[in-house]
Structure formats: structure tokens, C-alpha cells
Write a protein that binds this DNA or RNA. Sequence first.
DNA 1: CAAACATACATAAATCTCTTAGGTATCAAA
DNA 2: TTTGATACCTAAGAGATTTATGTATGTTTG
Lengths: 116, 116
Amino acid sequence: MLYSSELIKGTLRTIILKLLCDQQRMYGYEITQKVKELTNNRIQLTEGALYPSLHAMESEGLLVTETEYIGKRVRKYYSISKTGKAKATEKVNELAEFMETMRVLLNIDLRTLTVQ
Amino acid sequence: MLYSSELIKGTLRTIILKLLCDQQRMYGYEITQKVKELTNNRIQLTEGALYPSLHAMESEGLLVTETEYIGKRVRKYYSISKTGKAKATEKVNELAEFMETMRVLLNIDLRTLTVQ
DNA sequence: CAAACATACATAAATCTCTTAGGTATCAAA
DNA sequence: TTTGATACCTAAGAGATTTATGTATGTTTG
């Protein structure tokens, strides 16, 4: 089951920043696969959203890139800057608080929730 | 503190449907106030988003309206239909699963989270 | 008693984020 | 040799919301 994508809106940057906080460096395609794997195919990032988002965060100084060649194929690695790290923390905290607020508002019982 | 509103996107209908599930009937302005109160001013629904959303859900048969006059002032009450109730459950469950997935993905520890 | 604020509805243009759809190219497997 | 995976990218369109605006009544306060 895939989530109705409206929900993903607004969380893409948070996901990317948090992943890059933990993983040192990753390239775009790798990010899509990692998210897919970590969420048991529940969240499938689209490239049309991912790449522009990566480019934007690079130009904002949140991410830094280095390009490498694997054979003849280009691979663009992204890693997180100091500013990016701060932004990651901020965004994750904000999302956490938002989720907690929604949990209370909608009276969602997380104890009975197991996603697998 | 108000949430950066991107997060709210995609959850507006869920909030409205769930509230109307619990409250029998409410009017638009009342919904904004109730959400504000229940979230300690954290979520502030904008009227530009709320009213079109209510109108859409009415035309989709999820909500039913009755108009009343309080003095000379119009008040439009919304209540939830049977279809709406089913939709509410569906949407709340979907959001709950999405939040749980995000919690795992971002490694958010809800035990240390207290929103107040 | 007038101004400010709250209540109560509504619409429309602009904005933002993402999807859909397309494009290019390399590499591995069947 | 064709299919599928890897790997990058952009642009048009869609969808949900914000911002701005409008109308009008009721209440409070200086």
C-alpha cells in the first residue's frame, strides 16, 4: 500500500535532510531506494520531486555535492552542511510536534498501531 | 508557535471529518475555533482553505448542511453523512499509518515528546 | 457613541509542492 | 537484443493552500 501522496507533501525535505544526517553521503537514486526499503515500499519518492528538491537545498547551502564517475556513469553525491544539520534538527522537531498535535487532535492511539 | 503550514496540507479534510464525527454538527467558524482550542493555538485553519473544502465535501455527499439564522446573521451547520463517516475512519487510519511510518523512518522518539 | 474587535459567511489570484510525462544514457541479465 | 535496473534531468499540469479581499452583523471599550 502506498500513501495517498498529499500526506507526503511538506515532508520531502525533512526526509532527505534527516537521511543525510545519518548517512554521511548519498546520491539521489540511492535516497529513493533507501526510503523505499526503510518504509517497506510505503513511501516511494518520485524523481520529479526529489531532484529539484536536492538542487534547491544545494543552492540554499544546506547540501554539498561531489560528482563521481562509476564507469561512464555519473553519480552525484550529496552530503549535509553545518547549516543543513541545523535545519534537519529543526524540521524533524517540527514534524514530531506536528504529529503529536495531530495525534491528540484526532485521538489516535499509537499503542494499537503497528505498521509492518 | 504555529506550524509551517506545508505540514497541514493534506490533513485538512481529515481534521474536519473527524471533528464532525465526534460533534454531531458544527459551523465553519466554530470549526476554526475548536481546532485552535484543541491544539493550543498550534493549528489555525484559514477560512480561504476551510470554506472551499466544506463546500467540496458537501457536493461529494460527505457532509450535509442546514442553514440557520442567529438574529440577522446566517450560520451554516455541517453534519456528517454515513459516507462521510466511513471516509473519516479511512482518512484517520491512513494518517495514523503514515505518521507511524514517518516516526520509524525519522527515528522519532515519542516518549520524550510532550506538546504543551 | 464611535472605533475596534469578534463573529460569520464567501471568492479569487497567486503560490508552493508535487505528479505525470517526457528525455538521455549506461550496464546487466535473459 | 530487448528488458529492466541504474542514474541523471526538466517542464507542464494538477492540487491544496495562502493571501488578499469583500460583505455584514454583533459586542466591547475608551
